[in-house]
Nucleic acid binder design. Sequence first.
DNA 1: TTGTATGCGTTATCAT
DNA 2: ATGATAACGCATACAA
Lengths: 347, 347
Amino acid sequence: MNIYDISQKAGVSTATVSRVLNQSTKVTEKTRNKVLAAIEECGYTPNAFARGLGLNTMKTVGIMCADSSDPYFARAIYFLGEALRKSGYDVILSCTGFDQDMRERQMSLLLNKRVDSVILIGSNYTSDTDENNRYITDAAKSIPVMMINGNINASNVYCIASDDRTAVFDVTSQLISSGRNRPLYIYNSRSYGGIQKLRGFRDALKNNRIKADESNELFIGFRRSGGEIFPVKEIKKSIEDHFAKYGSFDCIIAAEDIIAVGALKFASSNGITVPDKLAVAGYNNFELCECCEPELTSVDNHLELLCDKCVSLLMEVFSGESIPKQTVFSCNIIERATTDLKERPRL
Amino acid sequence: MNIYDISQKAGVSTATVSRVLNQSTKVTEKTRNKVLAAIEECGYTPNAFARGLGLNTMKTVGIMCADSSDPYFARAIYFLGEALRKSGYDVILSCTGFDQDMRERQMSLLLNKRVDSVILIGSNYTSDTDENNRYITDAAKSIPVMMINGNINASNVYCIASDDRTAVFDVTSQLISSGRNRPLYIYNSRSYGGIQKLRGFRDALKNNRIKADESNELFIGFRRSGGEIFPVKEIKKSIEDHFAKYGSFDCIIAAEDIIAVGALKFASSNGITVPDKLAVAGYNNFELCECCEPELTSVDNHLELLCDKCVSLLMEVFSGESIPKQTVFSCNIIERATTDLKERPRL
DNA sequence: TTGTATGCGTTATCAT
DNA sequence: ATGATAACGCATACAA
């Protein structure tokens, strides 16, 4: 069942059928109806491959992320997918993990499939060497590349990001203003975004003349992968070790909500009251925040906004407009029960 | 840059280039090398659309689910994607919400894209009327349809499911055996799987000669959608209302982990000790279970196993083998701190 | 407004 | 083992 069959049945040429299919106005109402009737009768749908071959697009964009089961990425995929669908695009999903080889391989698979664009979710796609970013800038030579929370400066790659540095700076500053003076920052990623957050923390300390050394920072090397459950217990253990080694702290700023949950576990199992003796702030403001006890203060990074903006910018690129290569949104602190952020005179 | 250019550069015919590209053995080592050199030199990659047109496949399968940001679906997408990738297939992702119209529309979009198969994740794709399932059985006329946790009896649709009825039956029975006699079942979905779970609960009560009426069952009509945060507070409120209306219960079986979290919130804010006064069991055994306080007993439904099996069965279908139309796996109860399941003499 | 003819880049069939 | 060429199904430039 192809366009030729339909043209036969309707008694017109294939060109006319094609015109009807493509909403061309240059078709009489009468012939249009004949064609539509034939199409309806046969339940005909045009072959997307042939169509793609002619138009050189199948209206699909590739989405790459490390792990679609990570809540942050999962939500981004959802928001991006919805926005793209509304604009008439389908998404090919590609999970790469954190391995450079896999990233490159998956990117080239997407390019082979002739996607119209690739969207990279997560700052882990921003490497610190040009060499490791090459596969991205190369891809950008043939199609626009969009990065959610990435930061690569190259032609035809566009970055949409939340201002993580400022967010961590603000939450840390507010904790200090509320009377805390022994902060601990806990993080699990040294990706671009991870570095930005860490900078925010350090800047806040410097700004408040609090000494910053290894006692203030705890790196935990865990990373979600393969739909596996995040090791809250291990986080708790790491905090206990840190505590034993460096002594106490009166507030914890976590680079991810799940780390903050580990901190709450640490507190409860060691008889430390939250937020009295220990304030805790998370990052991402997901479902988890309302599930733990007490409920978690967290930073909302407006993921939906980022995703919507990403897609609308992409559509502008498709229609030939030129768009900013970098778009940054600020974050919001959502206060719940693990902090008490009202300002207090510094002792 | 196409296959013709390469054939020119290598001094061979397009047929030979194609043979090299498709690992055909019928080509001399020498000519193969000439061709490979030309390909390498030009950085040539075959056009997937033209390829699809000739082979009538682009090696892609469509995945449909209600909401890719739901942790259960997100994990399924991850596992399916990985397994498919290993088998050389890409995935087109399609979120449909819970709306029949959208389901049908998305399915037809996938069929238009000529995917090789469609995988439906979630029992919500199993409607109770044939009419509403029509779009699935119709699709199955052209491609194999796989259902994760679905149950539709039709030619060319294959269901892979966990035995939810038995799982809820078992967890309820064990709670009763451990000395509880006023159980409450809380659920939020009347999909096929939702009904199965409810049946398991009712069967367990009947089996233990415990009266079953509306005081034992609480339906909360919330459903995750659009990446929105699940309303734990509302769940807690609903339980309080139910409590006020029907009096107390000594164990709660929840159809989803997040509901169980709501139950824990209810307990803690009403001074009810868990598991002493109230035992709580969740369902899905996700990350959440280790984040709440106390840690949640839950049912593990082996999602990864289901997904792997789904893909391996699909590959068998592709290679012409005939496979069972229904494959069922049993679940496991993972006991944590919200229950005390050791058997006790019934008073 | 409609039809004719050709190109799109492969793969596959049939010769050689 | 290799080459010539016909599909594959659609879009479109050009002709009418």
